[in-house]
């Protein structure tokens, strides 16, 4: 039973949604324009700018790097993040308080500062290969999301069912895999999606960690824009938006889109 909305407020909200969505529509339009400069509304329709993406080797290479970094980084962050979230919730009373504060730190430290510090210490200082630095940097960037999202679903997990499994003779690791993990499935999926999206779109950390020959797609887009200002960028952007659509479709298929409203 919703209360009535004042028409002025309703109109304002409609304007806000126009403001939020119109720029994305404009990108799609600009990507289809048959001009060598970016414009909207499109003048003539063509798909040649999409074809052009695949002609540019740098886009193809960085897109693959971005995917690799996002998958490895997300996997790594979940691999260390899930046990951390589990321990923080399971042994909340026994663990010192600074531990949970520690996992808030990556949010408090500006990404751009983190990127700079990481470059100085591991890429330059330790001389780690660029690709490894990127994966490590991304894993750490998204670790707090993994810990918090998984932690949120663990917070409502009833640890007594774990004890029940143990009392029925199930060994600890098997208990975790067969009893705990299935019950926090939604949290793990949500963490994966959030982490993946954050990683694939990241600029602030990557901008310091990319090096000669190895770059990520958003960084490559920025570099490309400094030299060319043609609809190719718009069409790459459209492809990135399709990734977002794909992610939302995965959310819908696994958790239901209403999950996002919670």
């Amino acid at each position: 039973m919703p209360t009535r909305i004042h028409p002025i407020l309703g109109a304002f909200a409609i304007l806000v949604f126009f403001f939020l969505l119109a720029p994305l529509v404009i990108i799609v339009g600009a990507a289809l324009s048959d001009t060598t400069f970016l414009t909207f509304p499109p003048q003539g329709l063509t798909l040649r700018w999409f074809a052009n993406i695949f002609q540019i080797e740098a886009f193809r290479r960085t897109a693959i790097t971005s995917l690799q970094v996002a998958l490895l980084g997300t996997g790594l962050s979940l691999l260390i993040g899930i046990p951390a979230a589990y321990a923080l919730n399971r042994y909340r009373v026994e663990l010192p308080r600074w531990l949970s504060t520690l996992f808030v730190l990556p949010i408090l430290v500006p990404e751009i500062v983190f990127g700079f510090a990481l470059m100085k210490s591991i890429t330059i200082g330790l001389g780690l290969p660029v690709f490894i630095s990127l994966v490590v940097g991304h894993a750490l960037l998204i670790l707090p999301y993994s810990v918090r999202v998984v932690g949120a679903s663990l917070a409502s997990f009833d640890f007594s069912i774990e004890e029940a499994a143990r009392s029925l003779g199930c060994p600890p690791l098997k208990t975790f895999m067969t009893v705990v993990l299935p019950n926090i499935r939604a949290g793990v999926i949500a963490a994966f999606i959030l982490a993946f999206i954050t990683s694939i779109n990241d600029v602030s950390v990557s901008v310091f960690l990319t090096g000669p020959g190895i770059s990520t797609l958003p960084i490559q887009i920025l570099a490309h824009m400094e030299q060319f200002f043609d609809p190719t960028i718009a069409s790459v952007s459209v492809l990135l938006m399709l990734v977002t659509v794909g992610v939302m479709a995965i959310v819908e298929a696994t958790l239901g889109l209403t999950f996002l409203t919670k």
Partner: peptide, 8 residues
């Protein structure tokens, strides 16, 4: 959607 796309 990424910050680059949205700023662009």
């Amino acid at each position: 959607t990424g910050v680059v796309v949205r700023s662009f």
